[in-house]
Computed example of a mutant assay.
Amino acid sequence: MNAYAKRLLWPVLILLALIAVNIVATGVDFIVPSVNDDGRLGGAFVNILRRSAPLLLIALGMTLVIATKGIDLSVGAVYAIGAAIACQTIIDAPDQTAGGLVLAAVALALAATAAIGAWNGVMVAHFGIQPIVATLVLMIAGRGIAQLVTGGQIPKVQDASPFTELGRGAFLTVPIPIWIAALVLTALALLTRRTALGMLLESVGGNPEASRLAGIRSRGITVLVYLVCGLCAGLAGLIGAANLGSADANNGGLWIELDAILAVVIGGTALLGGRFFLLGTAIGVVIIGTLEDTIINVGLSSQWQFTAKAVVVFAVALLQSPEFRGWVLRPLRRRPEAPAPAQAEEAAS
C-alpha cells in the first residue's frame, strides 16, 4: 500500500463507520438515494452532499494554501462578501429574472473574491506578513465590507430569479451544488496531479528557500493559491446565498474556516506544508457533514456537535500518526527473549 492510500485509509474507515451507525439508527434509506416528486435526487446522504458543497469548495482552496505552509482565516468573510455583492447587484436591478443580470452579478462577485484572495497572497508572499496575521485582518474587516455592500440590510432575491438555481436547482436530477463541487474538485485534481503544479506546491511548502534557489517562483505560486482560495470561498458564498435566497453579512459562512481546516486535517494534509491530499479533504468534508446528521439520528443534542468534531479529528490524527501506531503495536512486535545459556545447552543435548 503506497503512502497516498495509507493516508486515505483511516478517513475512509471513519466515514464507513459513521454511515453504518446511521444505517443502524435510521435504516438503509439513509444511504439509498430517492427521487423527489419534482424529479430531483434526494435522500439523507444526497442532502448531506448538497449541504456540504460550499464547505468542500472552501476546504479545497484551504488545502492548496496549507500545502504552501500557509493558512487562510478570511474565507468565511470572503464567503459573506461574495454573497453580498451578488445579491445586492441583483436586487438593485429592475428585473431580477434577467439571465444576463445574474451572470454579471456572479462574475462581479467571483472577480471581487478572487482579487481579495490575491491581496492575501501578496501580503504573505511579497510583504512577508505571517499568513495567520494577514488573513486575520481580513477575517475581521471582511464582514464589515459585506455590511457596507448591503447597507446593513439582508438583501433578498426573488424566488423567480435564475440565481436561486445555483443552490436549489438540479441537472440530470443531481443537485447543482454537487455538480459544482465535483467539477472544481476534478479540475483542481487534474491541475495538481497531471501537471507540474502539484510538485511545485509541495516544493514551496516543503522548503520555500530551497525552492527559490532552485528557480521556482515561489511568490507567484503563493499568490496563485490564495487567489484560488478566495475564488472558491466566493463561489461557496454564491451557492449558500442562492440556496437561502438572501445574503446575511453577519452570519453567512460564520466559522466555516474552522470546519474547512478540520476537513483538511482529517484528509491527511499536514499543517506544516508539503504533501496534500485533495481527495482526502473531500472525504473529510463528507465526514463532518455525516457526523452532524449522526448526532441527531442517534438521539443526541445538537450541543454535542463541536465535541464530536473534536473527538473525530483527534481520533483520525492519532490513527494517521506512525509514532502512535508504533507505540500501540510495539508490544505485539516484541521478539521472544533468547533462551538462557543453561536452557540452550539442555536443548542442544
Score class of each variant (00 low, 15 high):
G237A: 05
A270D: 09
F276G: 11
G284L: 05
A260E: 08
L279P: 01
L254I: 13
F277E: 14
T269P: 00
L235T: 04
I261R: 12
R275I: 11
L235P: 04
G234E: 11
A263F: 10
T281Y: 03
I283E: 04
L238K: 03
T281L: 06
A242H: 01
I266N: 05
D248W: 02
I256W: 14
D248F: 01
A242D: 02
W255C: 01
D248S: 08
G234R: 00
S246P: 03
G240F: 04
I239F: 01
A242M: 00
G267M: 03
A260I: 00
F277Y: 15
N251G: 15
I283A: 06
A282L: 09
N250K: 12
G280R: 12
L244S: 10
D259G: 10
T281M: 03
L238P: 02
G268S: 09
F277V: 13
G274M: 08
G274I: 10
G245W: 07
L279H: 09
E257P: 12
N250T: 12
L238A: 08
I261K: 12
G252N: 02
A249M: 03
I239T: 00
G280L: 08
G273C: 07
I256E: 13
L258A: 14
G234A: 08
L279N: 02
E257N: 13
R275F: 11
A242P: 04
N250L: 13
A236G: 12
V264M: 02
I283M: 08
N250S: 14
G245R: 09
L271N: 04
G240P: 09
A249R: 00
A260T: 06
I283H: 06
L258P: 07
F276Y: 13
L244M: 12
D259I: 11
